[in-house]
Design a protein around this nucleic acid. Sequence first.
DNA 1: GATGCGTGGCT
DNA 2: TAGCCAAGCAT
Length: 350
Amino acid sequence: MAETPPVPADLSRRLLAWYDAGHRDLPWRPQPHALGEPYGVWLSEVMLQQTTVAAVIPYYRAFLERWPTVADLAAASDAEVMAAWAGLGYYSRARNLLACARAVAVRPGGAFPRTEAELRALPGLGPYTAAAVAAIAFGQQAAAVDGNVERVLSRVFDDATPLPAFKPKARVLAQALVPADRPGDFAQAAIDLGAVVCRPRNPDCLICPWRDACRARANGTVALRPVRPEKPERPHRLGFAYWVESEHGVWLVRRPPKGLLGGMLALPCGDWTAEAVPLALPKGWRATILNAPVRHVFTHFSLDLTVVRVGAAGDPALVFGEGFWGTAADLAGLPTVMQKVRRRAEESSK
DNA sequence: GATGCGTGGCT
DNA sequence: TAGCCAAGCAT
C-alpha cells in the first residue's frame, strides 16, 4: 500500500471535544465516557448497515420491546423475525441477525465475545460492524470505518483514490486516530462528523472541528471527495403478482432463503425479467388484470409489476406453489414491494 | 475486485 | 423528477 501521510496531532482530542459539546441523541447511544450495552449496540449497528437513522429508530424500539435480550431474540422463530424486519430492507441482515443471536446464546454465559476478531466471525458482522461493537460496547481500540468515516478521511487527507480502493487506506488512517481511552466515543464522533458536518453534499466546513487540518478544504477539492466509481445502468424488469383471495385469506408464499427478498413472505409471482409472461390459470378461475402496474425500484433494477386478482376455483398451491391463506397479521409481514401490490389490489376491490 | 442485495428521503 | 445516497456484508 502507498504510504499514508502523517496524521496531524490532536485531531482525536478536537473531535471528542466537539462530540462532548453536543451530539445526536440516539436511543442506542451510551453517555460519553460510558460503554454501550452489547445487545443494543449490535442490534442498532446491524440495522444501520446502509440504512438511515430515521428508518432504523422505530424498528430498533420495536425489536428491543419484543425481544429485550439476545437470548429472547435467539428463541424467536425465523418467521417472526423476518416479519418484524419487513420494510427495513436487505433481508439477509435479518437472517444473519437471528443466526448471530443463536450463536451468541450458546456461548459461555450467553454473552457476546469482546474482541474485534471474535465479533468478526459472527454472521452479519463485517469489518465495520465488528469494529463498531468492539469499540462502543467493549472499549476496544478498534477503528470503525463506515461510509461517513471514509468520506471525512478522504477530505481531510485530500485523497483521490476512488472508492472502494480507498477503504484500506482509511482503515490505516483511522486506526492511528483511535484514542486508547475513548474508542467508542471516537467511533460515534467520527460518524456524527460525517453525518452532520462533513456531509456528502453541502458540507458545513465552518463549524468543523477539523477545518484547520483539512487538506481538501485548503485545496478547494471538498466537493470532489471521495471519488466514486460510475454506477452501472439500472435495467428495467417486468412481472406479474397474483392476489388470490378467499374466505380464508390471501394466498401467501415463502420466498427461497437466499437471493432477492430471501426468506420473506410474498404474494405469488412469476419471474421478473425483461419481458413478462403471465402464468396460465386453470379453466374456470377468474382473473382480473388491474390497469396500472405497481412500480418499485430496487438497488440494481427497477420493476413494473402487473397485479392480477384471481378467483381460484381449486387449490392455489397447484398453480402458485406451496403456501397458505394469510390473514391481516400475516400481510403485515410483507416487504415493501409486496405492500404496494397489496394496496393496489385492495383499492381495486372498493 | 465485482456483484447482488431494499427502502425512503432529499435535491 | 430521476438520480444520489445511507452506520455494509456475503460470495
